[in-house]
Amino acid sequence: MNLTLKIWRQKGPQDKGKMVDYKVSDISEHMSFLEMMDVLNEQLVNSGEEPVAFDHDCREGICGMCSLHINGEAHGPDRGITTCQLHMRMFKDGDTITIEPWRAKAFPVIKDLVVDRSAFERIQQAGGYISVNTSGNTQDANSIPISKHAADEAMDAAACIGCGACVASCKNSSAMLFVGAKVSQFALLPQGQVEATDRVKNMVAQMDLEGFGNCTNTGACEVECPKGITLENIARMNRELFKASLIKF
């Protein structure tokens, strides 16, 4: 198929940036979206132009590196996938495809389609862990039975890949689905209880500090999340935060 691509080009953080049109031809429907981008870049390199910078790595939907707002949707027009898992069979010959970076104040553009997601790092550093040192003397893994339901639910929350689609999809650029997922994973497990109060308070405070917006329960994040993280996690985070506000220490 032959396609017209409208792509956001931006030299660097200080550059204003603009949309630029490109044409690609003979695209196979079996290609992934990023393989289509490879074709474009090979074409640009061969004609002496600078290729389009975009983040990508594992290309199997798990590293969370790839982003891209495609035709106004995070990770493009399919559900439960990342951009690297989007296939060209979702498009048809003659289509015009708009490709933009994540748009959020807390995710400034580095170059073209690459954004800076280090705000997520700082939120995790604020409390996204259980304080246990490596020693070889931790108790036997089976000494605390954990109900299968809690373990499965914790796993579902832990499936978050930190890609930022939730933020990019939210009209408020809220990171609550991301933070809610991490808070939930630990809130559901006995190992996470000891630090539960501090964790939720510190992570939420850092989230606010980074300039992410608030949640107004629109649910766009849940729809676009490639890993199916549910809004329940935001509700759980709010409950945890409320609970924490009632505890003195």
């Binding site: 490596t134 108790q139 893994a141 299968k148």
Partner: peptide
């Protein structure tokens, strides 16, 4: 020799390994 320590360590960190209905790994 150290393999079983790894599982203990990861569980302590909150890694959600699959469990059976009795709550064990």
């Amino acid at each position: 020799e150290v393999s079983s320590n790894i599982i203990d360590q990861c569980v302590a960190q909150g890694v959600p390994f699959a469990r059976d209905y009795g709550g064990l790994l």
